[in-house]
Amino acid sequence: MERSIHLNAATAEHYQFALELYLLTMRPYTQELMVWDEAKQRASFATLWKLSEVRIVAVDGREVGWLQVQESPTDVHLLQFFIAPDQQGSGIGTEVLRSLLPTWRAMAKPVLLTVLKNNPARRLYERLGFSVVGDSGVKYEMKLNT
């Protein structure tokens, strides 16, 4: 059975969904590398959340993730990308990113992201053409190969 994956514009009502998914998915990896400070994480999330940059990942009409992409005159930055833990490993992340890569490549700008060093999502990014280009402590900086 074929599934239908869509990226939908986020609304203000998606804030809580995105926050809860962020906290759920980031806590285990962050705790391995540093002390988890819930209040600090929530405050950081509130600062970074930009509704106009967020798309909600829906599979067969069910919201299962979200991503935030910031475009500037000089680059494209994948700031956040989260898929619900019970949906991870099913190819959703791969399909979403594969659908975005042609558009990003056509912009002829560097496509950048950071990922926690212990986050298995790094393998996904590498499979899709990203390489580690820097190290910022607990995170790797990655760039899409052109």
Rank of each mutant, 00 (worst) to 15 (best):
residue 38 E to G: 09
residue 32 E to M: 10
residue 106 A to Y: 02
residue 84 A to I: 01
residue 102 P to D: 09
residue 67 L to R: 09
residue 114 T to V: 08
residue 43 A to S: 12
residue 108 A to V: 09
residue 127 R to A: 10
residue 114 T to H: 11
residue 93 G to M: 04
residue 34 M to A: 10
residue 97 L to C: 07
residue 105 R to D: 09
residue 50 K to G: 02
residue 92 I to S: 02
residue 55 R to S: 09
residue 126 E to M: 10
residue 109 K to P: 15
residue 20 E to M: 02
residue 104 W to V: 03
residue 9 A to W: 09
residue 45 F to R: 01
residue 15 Y to C: 08
residue 134 G to T: 12
residue 82 F to C: 02
residue 40 K to M: 08
residue 48 L to H: 07
residue 74 T to I: 14
residue 129 G to V: 02
residue 40 K to F: 11
residue 95 E to M: 04
residue 7 L to S: 01
residue 121 A to C: 07
residue 82 F to Q: 00
residue 93 G to R: 02
residue 135 D to W: 00
residue 107 M to Y: 13
residue 5 I to C: 06
residue 139 K to F: 15
residue 50 K to F: 06
residue 57 V to K: 06
residue 30 T to S: 14
residue 105 R to V: 11
residue 56 I to H: 06
residue 21 L to F: 13
residue 6 H to Q: 14
residue 55 R to V: 08
residue 122 R to Q: 07
residue 95 E to W: 01
residue 10 A to C: 04
residue 90 S to F: 00
residue 8 N to S: 00
residue 55 R to A: 06
residue 90 S to Q: 13
residue 89 G to A: 06
residue 120 P to S: 08
residue 100 L to N: 07
residue 77 H to I: 11
residue 41 Q to D: 08
residue 93 G to Y: 00
residue 66 W to I: 08
residue 78 L to H: 04
residue 83 I to G: 00
residue 128 L to Y: 07
residue 13 E to L: 10
residue 81 F to Y: 01
residue 52 S to L: 04
residue 60 D to Q: 09
residue 11 T to V: 07
residue 118 N to W: 09
residue 89 G to S: 06
residue 64 V to T: 15
residue 137 G to C: 13
residue 65 G to D: 04
residue 84 A to P: 04
residue 15 Y to N: 05
residue 75 D to R: 15
residue 136 S to K: 15
residue 38 E to H: 11
residue 122 R to H: 00
residue 45 F to N: 09
residue 73 P to L: 15
residue 112 L to W: 04
residue 16 Q to T: 09
residue 42 R to E: 10
residue 107 M to T: 15
residue 22 Y to R: 05
